[in-house]
Amino acid sequence: MGISKAALAGTLESSDIQITLSPAANGIQIELTSAVASQFGEQIKKVITQTLQSLGIDNVAVKAVDKGALDCVIKARTIAAGQRALGQKEPAWEVL
């Protein structure tokens, strides 16, 4: 499914990642800004994609500004942004 409204989660501080989601029609498209994109870009995109899919989101435009976040942080921020975009208030336990 897609999302109905745009949402943001995370910060630009060291070891964090800022995820912005906006409605789109053609699959999951990720635009990544990261100082370590050449080493870890594919891994970061993979974590974001899998997390979104586990929330049932498969049509969305993603902007990710990475400041050296670990996978667990990337996952947590993606879940927060995804749930905000879907208007869900209860934590999605099965995704964690």
Binding site: L8, T11, L12, E13, S14, Q18, K67
Partner: peptide, 11 residues
Amino acid sequence: AYFNQIVSELQ
């Protein structure tokens, strides 16, 4: 670090 923290907070 300070710059990122300010911009991030405002965003």
